[in-house]
Simulated assay, not measured.
Amino acid sequence: MIDIDDLVVRRGTADVLSGLNARVAPGESVRVAGPNGSGKSTLLRVLAGLTAPDAGRVTVDGRAPGDPAVRALRGYVQEPPPLYEHLTAAEQLGFTAGVWGVPAGALRERAAALGLGERLDVLVGELSLGQRKKLGYVCSTAHAPRLVLLDEPFNGLDAAAESAVREDLARWRSEGRTLVVVSHSDTSVAGLVDRTLTLEAAA
């Protein structure tokens, strides 16, 4: 599913990722760990096709991360989520449903399960950070992606929403989807990942 060979990403003159080699098999669930500055979020952005490598080679399902076919099979739960602040939460869900050709009602049900049921008529820009994170989570995974990239998915969530997200991850794992989860805490992903890929801060 994911092949990373000698990946280098620079910020200015400093290497954020330097010579990274890794493999993630189809259906595997991997936690990405490491100290601040080790490039965890940068790695997800590379896999999402949003940051280009300065050197090395990265493929997802045999293609470059930015390939349209890869975008269709991938979901990227990022922080902060890319949302339209001038839309209501319901309108954002409807827009996302139209993009992916999925029922808007199903997305509203998922949002309600995360505690957003009574906030759907509120402008996205007026939602709290935690509420926007819930909405972004639903939108980013609306199309049932085969590969799900998650950057600290539990940060800012209340206990009920965290439980619902954990249930989603467990179900996706059982369905054979590939998960790559950045998490500072090994306990938060206990039972949800097969192994941990630990990055080191570049010298």
Rank of each mutant, 00 (worst) to 15 (best):
A142D: 06
A142M: 11
H143R: 00
H143Y: 06
H143D: 01
A144P: 09
A144M: 04
P145Y: 12
P145R: 12
P145W: 09
P145S: 14
P145V: 10
R146Y: 14
R146W: 07
L147G: 10
L147Y: 11
L147H: 05
V148F: 03
L149P: 08
L149Q: 05
L149A: 11
L150A: 05
L150Q: 01
D151C: 13
D151G: 11
D151S: 14
D151W: 08
E152I: 09
E152M: 00
P153K: 07
P153W: 04
P153Q: 08
F154W: 13
F154Q: 05
F154V: 05
G156I: 08
G156Y: 15
G156K: 12
G156V: 10
G156L: 12
G156T: 13
L157H: 15
D158A: 10
A159D: 12
A159C: 14
A159Q: 14
A159I: 13
A160Y: 15
A161F: 06
A161I: 06
A161V: 05
A161P: 09
A161C: 11
A161T: 08
E162T: 12
A164L: 06
A164M: 14
A164I: 06
A164R: 15
V165G: 04
V165Y: 04
R166L: 01
E167F: 01
D168R: 09
L169G: 02
L169I: 01
A170M: 00
A170L: 04
R171F: 02
R171Q: 07
R171H: 11
W172L: 08
W172C: 06
W172M: 09
W172Y: 05
R173G: 12
S174C: 03
S174Q: 04
S174I: 02
E175V: 06
E175I: 06
E175K: 09
